[in-house]
Design a binder for these strands. Structure first.
Lengths: 230, 230
DNA sequence: TCCGTATCGAGAGCGCTGCTCTCGGATTAG
DNA sequence: CTAATCCGAGAGCAGCGCTCTCGATACGGA
């Protein structure tokens, strides 16, 4: 019954340890991860790491997927912990959870949402985990709509080409959410990303002392735009 | 009258040429600029470049400042070309100009607004040029307010700590713009950055065929939130 | 149980990077 | 005219990602 042989288990353990050390390096040294440094930290020689990851980019990809999942899990947990019939409360919970995760893991956030690494092209494995936060957000809108807790924006505000594009997204993920509301949900997701990125990367908010309050106020403005009742 | 000697002029010309070649490399090869490759392209040896830029980061800083200024100039020119008494028109003009510049210079945009380079700390020379786009945006609000073309949002919506922070910004740059309106202007700037970054970096909009229309729609939503009359 | 095979870590090495130092040649200023 | 300054070339250092080879080990089928 030991389908995973000893060697296979040791190998899986090795992969995990390499990722753990790499994540630590990412947190301290920043985004330019050195495979050699990781190997050195593990008492290995650099070529040995290549037994487990065919290239440095593959190591990065593994870290990216794990980071997406960690963020997605934090966001979904915050959403699940909120009152299901309070769309605005869920919206704030999700926004705060995303920001908290980003502030706690700035290097990983930069990996996910910063400028793409030059030669690096994100493989398809990442698109599923990457969609978890925005899907959570739109899920709040869907629940609020079906529960009659929010009134959708007028559909007429959407130009036809935009509606056509959003219709595909809508059918793929949220058949119940009309396109105009979906557009506002994406606006909220864009704003959330912008707020966090400015706080982490930029110098704009360097002069803001009360960042928590600023963040809450700005996400509150977006909640108003989306139409979440307060 | 030749205060700039021959050597000084040649030196300035050399600096310009190095920056031009580096900018070309940035556009083709991506963000990881190789000082040696730049030197090679100029028929020089790498150590010679160090006569003009003490380090690779200083070269990057020079490029960053120039990029900020190029973006700022594009934005300000678009604003100046619009009808001064049409805040919403100016808002759209600025947004479109910023997006157009970013799409035309993706690598430079990534340099400005992407994840910060690990060991790199932006020097103070960059903060002035970096403020030009957001200042242009808030300038539109100020003009609209003094011309009576837009009604400011209720001040009561601002919590005290946020107002205190924004009051400093307000006094430093726009004494005429009340804090609540300033907050909405910053929301607009954040959204603009988010929209452009998602389009350039992310895979979210990969499925959107009509990106121009989507961008206009989203910036229109933000114009509504800011209170620009349409 | 034994043996061929697959896996693994170590080491050497290639070409690249940013950066430093030294050494001649050219240009400038006094 | 001379002395100080600037400039480009070259060698070299340490680090990087990655490849290849070579013994040592563990595995699975006969």
């Amino acid at each position: 019954m030991s389908a995973p042989s000893i060697r296979a288990r040791v190998r899986a353990q090795m992969i995990d340890e390499i990722k753990a050390v790499a994540r630590r390096h990412l947190a301290t040294d920043g985004a330019n991860l050195s495979l050699r440094a990781v190997a050195r930290d593990m008492g290995m020689v650099s070529s040995a790491v290549y037994r487990y990851f065919p290239s440095r980019d593959d190591l990065l990809t593994a870290l990216i997927i794990e980071a997406y999942d960690a963020l997605g899990e934090a966001v979904e947990a915050a959403d699940a912990a909120a009152d299901r019939h309070d769309p605005r409360g869920r919206w704030f919970a999700v926004c705060r959870a995303a920001r908290a995760w980003a502030l706690a893991h700035p290097a990983e956030y930069a990996l996910l949402y910063g400028s793409p690494v030059p030669g690096y092209a994100a493989p398809d494995d990442t698109i599923g985990p990457a969609q978890r936060p925005p899907l959570t957000l739109v899920g709040i809108l869907r629940d609020g709509l079906t529960a009659g807790l929010l009134t959708p924006p007028p559909e007429a505000e959407l130009p036809d080409p935009v509606r056509a594009d959003l219709a595909e997204l809508r059918e793929a993920f949220f058949p119940d959410v009309p396109e105009a509301l979906l557009a506002r949900g994406m606006a909220g997701w864009t704003q959330l990303f912008g707020l966090i990125s400015f706080e982490l990367f930029g110098r704009i908010n360097r002069s803001l002392a009360h960042r928590d309050a600023y963040f809450d106020h700005q996400t509150g403005l977006m909640a108003d735009l989306i139409g979440l009742p307060g």
